[in-house]
Nucleic acid binder design. Structure first.
Length: 298
DNA sequence: AGCTAGTGTCGGTACGTACT
DNA sequence: AGTACGTACCGACACTAGCT
């Protein structure tokens, strides 16, 4: 394949199709018709002598050749956009960009209301879409540009990612109003004797509390494990389960709290993005916004 | 330099095909 | 039947060669 025989715009289409997995949506994004995109894909297929994307019930799935190409294509597009000036400037007041964020419902509850207020003033045309992103696919999400930023504990060590600390959230023990343990000081003995509620979107894996207890050869009994914080709050309000949560959540729920009777490291939130997006002004702008909002949380 | 005809490219419409 | 991708064909446009 000779580069002088290929229209470089086809790589823009390739990038969009890799992200969207849908020819029709790509056509709308690029202001083309579906057949125009289909024809362009045909030219790409001819150039690379590979189908690149296969039609499946789950959309247009990339072939191994496309998978091998995508990181280089995206990197090249970032460099091109930077050098030709398109995208080199990000003007929040006039931008209609949609930022795609990966975060759980705790982060959504704590950050998105303030982010929306802040955007309404500074960037009225900007939209935000938040998704739950599985840790196993997090690096792929960022590499493919399907997500702009991810918010999670510092659990990723892929060299292609960049990250920055966002917030450090200390834990407390929360429980319903009128709970028998709400009237007195929380002791380690009382904590360990109680039944607990735990929030995690993963099927297995120990949380921060379990790790802290394990280091002291202690265990607690988790009798209910759920995947989102708003559900957990309702359960805690209606049962005697204790819920060890970041203190910052308390203003959002009708629960009382006590200090933890043993040391547990705070929940560390980091912001992750792909190295390709490191110099992207829009990505930089949103990172700064989120860091400012997270600073207000603390 | 300006005009014209031939050629290639690309995106459009219309329609076919596959799948749910 | 509805949705989505691929194909056939057509027109617009750009480029080039040849002619005046």
């Amino acid at each position: 394949m000779r580069l002088d025989h290929i229209d470089l715009n086809l790589f823009v289409l390739f990038d969009a199709l890799y992200r969207e997995r849908n020819v029709t949506r790509v056509a709308m994004q690029l202001n083309l018709t579906q057949p125009a995109v289909s024809n362009a894909l045909g030219r790409l297929r001819q150039s690379f002598d590979d189908p690149l994307f296969l039609r499946t019930p789950d959309g247009m799935q990339p072939t191994p050749v496309a998978e091998r190409m995508v990181a280089d294509v995206r990197e090249a597009l970032v460099l091109l956009r930077r050098s030709v000036g398109a995208g080199a400037r990000f003007v929040p007041a006039t931008s209609d960009k949609t930022f795609r964020l990966g975060m759980n419902d705790l982060a959504e509850s704590l950050l998105l209301p303030a982010l929306q207020s802040s955007l309404a003033h500074a960037a009225p045309g900007v939209a935000v879409a938040s998704y739950y992103v599985d840790r196993a696919s997090a690096v792929d999400e960022l590499r493919a540009g399907r997500s702009d930023l991810l918010l999670d504990a510092p659990v990723f060590n892929a060299r292609e990612l960049r990250h920055a600390p966002l917030a450090s959230l200390p834990y407390v023990v929360a429980m319903r109003r009128g709970h028998p343990l709400a009237r007195r000081k929380m002791t380690e003995k009382a904590y360990l004797a109680a039944e607990h509620l735990h929030v995690s979107s993963r099927r297995r894996g120990r949380g921060q509390v379990e790790i802290a207890l394990h280091s002291r050869n202690l265990r607690r009994r988790v009798s209910m494990r759920v995947q989102n914080y708003l559900v957990a709050a309702r359960i805690a309000q209606q049962t005697d389960l204790l819920w060890t949560v970041p203190r910052v959540l308390l203003p959002l729920v009708d629960l009382v709290s006590r200090p933890l009777p043993f040391p547990v490291p705070p929940l560390e939130w980091h912001l992750f993005w792909h190295g390709n997006a490191d110099g992207d002004p829009a990505n930089q702008w949103l990172r700064q916004r989120l860091q400012a909002l997270a600073g207000d949380l603390a």
